[in-house]
């Protein structure tokens, strides 16, 4: 039996320890994609979204010491997303002063006007949950055989039929039903673990 994985709140505590590089890396691997996607959905292009994600992470690394752990659960997330949202709004409304930052790339249409606070909050919640799901999937992936994982991924994510999936991995349909449910159950547990 593998030891119980660290809970997420303890990751936050570890991230605040400057010498815990591993915790920081894990933190970044969870949140960087979320910030990147947020920026993309707010109309930034690839390079600028990457740039923004980097900037947010760096400013988080600077400010994370001031975040108080004993506040209610979710506070850290709210705080992080506030940082991200402010950075995005800044990035969209204010052009950096030097040419090396790259020119204006906001040619793609914006998802919605950036003054819509409620919409931004929703977007941010959505992307955070997505990030958690993806983190959880990456975490549990190695616990399953490839065929088991594929039974889940092809049917639940790619949306192909049970029959097609069964043919693809050369198993019975009953096996696909059972396998995908087992993965789903584990995935859910992992997501809840993050929150808890």
């Amino acid at each position: 039996m593998a030891p119980l994985p660290e809970t997420r709140s303890s990751l936050l505590v570890r991230v605040r320890n400057p010498s815990d590089a591993e915790a920081w890396h894990e933190f970044a691997s969870i949140y960087r994609p979320a910030i990147y996607r947020l920026a993309r959905r707010r109309g930034l292009q690839d390079a600028d979204a990457e740039d923004l994600a980097q900037r947010v992470l760096v400013s988080v690394s600077g400010a994370i010491q001031t975040w108080e752990k004993d506040e209610k659960r979710g506070t850290f997330r709210a705080w992080l997303l506030r940082v991200a949202r402010n950075a995005i709004i800044n990035a969209i409304t204010r052009r950096p002063p030097d040419i090396a930052m790259g020119g204006s790339n906001a040619s793609e249409p914006l998802d919605m006007p950036h003054t819509d606070e409620e919409a931004i909050r929703k977007l941010v919640e959505d992307e955070h949950r997505r990030a958690v799901f993806r983190w959880a999937a990456a975490e549990v992936r190695s616990e399953f055989h490839d065929t088991t994982w594929k039974a889940f991924y092809r049917t639940a994510v790619d949306g192909i039929s049970i029959e097609d999936a069964a043919a693809e991995i050369d198993r019975t349909t009953g096996s696909v039903y059972a396998a995908r449910s087992r993965v789903m159950r584990r995935l859910k547990a992992k997501v809840l673990e993050f929150q808890g």
Partner: peptide, 16 residues
Amino acid sequence: SAADQEWWGEAGEYLR
């Protein structure tokens, strides 16, 4: 038993 419909839906949407 694995998860309710909302979870299945989220998994599909978020992992895609």
